[in-house]
Design a binder for these strands. Structure first.
Lengths: 145, 145
DNA sequence: ATAGGGCTTCCCATCATGGGAAGGTCAAGA
DNA sequence: TCTTGACCTTCCCATGATGGGAAGCCCTAT
């Protein structure tokens, strides 16, 4: 099957399929006489695997390891679990960082009148001299509208 | 003051200061006879503003708007609030997506024995045929160890 | 035979950040 | 005064995953 069909069937764009091939994540596809890439059902199966792993946020390098284990019939599930656990740690760190940002920002937003006047605790916070931003709330009492 | 000192004082690396200048986020710095960039305290103040906005996850384009409002003494806090609100929406969307990933992955990890055997619900999920991943938990009962 | 859609490769852009090279400047110490 | 080392300058390249687009070839249906 052509790359377009493989893309549709796997959910991976043709662009990305070529990219994965180029970077060595997947082996070079077979070619027809025309030069067109030719994909089998098992190629599509692999692409779908990649797609689902990307959906879980795995980086391509991690997917590389997962693919190796997938193909290795004598793998140990502990190895898979280790990769997944490392990845979920990254996810939780990212989430924590974003939550921290969102909390701070929400506090500032809550304190901003959002009207025609120029006074704004959001800008006031960004402008602040100190480089520690943990006691934002205390400093914001001045803006209690 | 030289760029290195401005970097240290603001928390923005010298590399990034030059980048911000080049891309127009900040005006071109004054130069000494030597060609060295020369920064004033108010330049550092602005850099610190940028730094803090980046820490809240604002993109450079958004910081551009925030800087304009910051400089505009007749600004309306509503405009600032609007930018911040749009940004927090993005943050919350990202967080939701990451939480979704983490939840799914955690479910899979919880079901993985993590031992010497090859059977692994994580790989099984990635390999699955269907493209809907919501009923993962049901399908996982087979792995109840 | 021709048209249109799909394929090929190649180059470029994103976004914020860092690395590094080649060369000029400055300040402190011998 | 000369040297040395730290700092500055510009320029180029890389990251990671993705998309856009151009020039040109292939295939199929009319």
């Amino acid at each position: 099957m052509n790359i377009g069909q493989a893309a549709k069937a796997s959910g991976v764009s043709a662009k990305m399929i070529r990219y994965y091939e180029q970077t060595g994540l997947i082996p070079a596809a077979a070619r027809k006489d025309s030069g067109y890439r030719d994909y089998s059902d098992s190629d599509v199966h692999m692409l779908r695997f990649i797609r689902r792993a990307r959906d879980l946020g795995f980086a391509v390098a991690e997917i590389n390891e997962l693919l190796s284990l997938w193909r290795d019939r004598s793998r140990q599930s502990a190895d898979v679990k280790r990769i997944a656990a490392a990845h979920i740690d990254e996810l939780r760190e990212k989430i924590a960082r974003l939550n921290q940002m969102a909390d701070t920002l929400q506090t500032l937003i809550d304190c901003c009148a959002g009207d025609h006047r120029p006074d704004c605790p959001i800008l006031a916070d960004l402008e602040k001299i100190g480089d520690d931003r943990q006691q934002t709330k205390a400093a914001l009492s001045a803006f209690g509208d």
